[in-house]
Amino acid sequence: MTRRNFLALSALASLAAGCGGGGGSDSKAALVKGVVYDSLQADLPIEGATVTIGGVSAVTTDRAQASATKQVGSFIINGAPLGATTVTVTVTGKPPQTIAFQPSITSGTNPDLALYLNIGQVRGRVLDEAGLPVKSAFVVVNTNQGSISGFSNTDGSFLIDLVPEGTSEISAGAGSKIVTKNVTIGFGINEIGDLQLQPDPNPNPPAPLKTISGKLTSALDSSPIAGAPVFLLREGIQLETLNTDATGDYYFIVPAGSYSLQVLPSGYIPETKPATLVNPNNPLTVNFSLTPR
């Protein structure tokens, strides 16, 4: 990716914020629930896998145990260690795979985890020229199947999920400073270390690439709805969030896959729509015409 093209993608940074996490301090046990999926088998849930967080384990639900409230491939761990950010999943007859997640485990009930085996994750840190962490830097991994993006946390760290195996290019940027690095991705966590930003010699980028985009308007008068949250979800799990711009427009840069879009504008009835992106080279448009409350 050229520096100019990367800066086009990093325009998303003005629309969304990075996510963070931290440990808790009270004595309540940490409860963690989730589902394990196999990325090589069309994301089917995996039965009978052992899920371990910091020495505390559970086995995923098989079909004989499943019920309306207990999904195949699901697990519950009570007493997970506070501050944990990785989980190890073991399937009989196969090597264990370690998967990273964020935010870190806190006391009480934690957000549900969607754990995908047999696919890569990219973990690293974005630094400025002085070596200091950069918050909310835009990070994108370009693969032969499309682009996956995210943002750095307060400490400069980032975690990009669902990255296919093979050679990829990762870029990070903030303002007019960027850095690009080629990496080889394998299953599980791929630690790429620090990405240190440098001034960009071509700070005027072309228009950004948009793989899923659309507009929010009022059904009353077709006026644009600005500043409305738009949530990108996969299997009910929130992947990214941003707000519509002044003209009611939004866009995401994601690889091919089945997603859903949920909009929650103030003063309007919320709405959710499916968004199946077959080919990132053929962008998908999903518009919303929302009814005032």
Rank of each mutant, 00 (worst) to 15 (best):
M1T: 15
F6T: 06
S10I: 09
S14M: 10
A17E: 15
G20E: 13
G22P: 07
G23R: 02
G23H: 01
S25T: 14
D26F: 09
K28T: 07
K28E: 10
A30F: 03
G34S: 05
V35H: 01
D38H: 04
D38N: 12
D43V: 07
I46M: 07
E47M: 11
G48E: 13
A49E: 05
T50A: 10
G54R: 01
G54E: 06
V56T: 14
V56D: 09
S57G: 08
A58I: 02
A58H: 08
A58Q: 09
V59W: 08
D62P: 09
A64Y: 10
A66G: 12
A66D: 07
A68F: 13
I76P: 05
I77T: 05
L82Q: 13
T86M: 08
V87W: 01
T90Y: 00
V91D: 07
T92K: 13
Q97I: 03
A100Q: 11
T109Y: 02
L115A: 08
Y116A: 15
N118W: 07
D128P: 01
P133V: 04
V134I: 15
A137G: 10
F138M: 13
V140G: 06
N142D: 12
N144H: 09
G150L: 07
F151L: 15
G156K: 03
G156F: 02
G156Y: 04
S171L: 06
V179S: 09
K181F: 10
G193Y: 02
L197G: 06
Q198D: 05
D200H: 00
P201F: 11
P201L: 11
P203N: 10
P206V: 05
P206A: 12
T211W: 00
K215G: 13
L216N: 04
T217I: 15
P224K: 03
P224V: 10
I225Y: 00
A228C: 07
F231P: 01
F231H: 12
L232K: 02
L232I: 12
E235Y: 11
E235D: 14
E235H: 09
E235W: 05
L239Q: 12
L239Y: 03
E240M: 09
T241A: 15
T244E: 04
Y251L: 06
G257M: 06
S258D: 14
L261S: 06
S266M: 13
S266L: 14
I269E: 14
P270N: 10
P274V: 07
P280F: 00
N281R: 15
P283M: 00
L284M: 10
T285Y: 02
V286N: 03
F288T: 05
F288A: 05
L290P: 01
L290T: 03
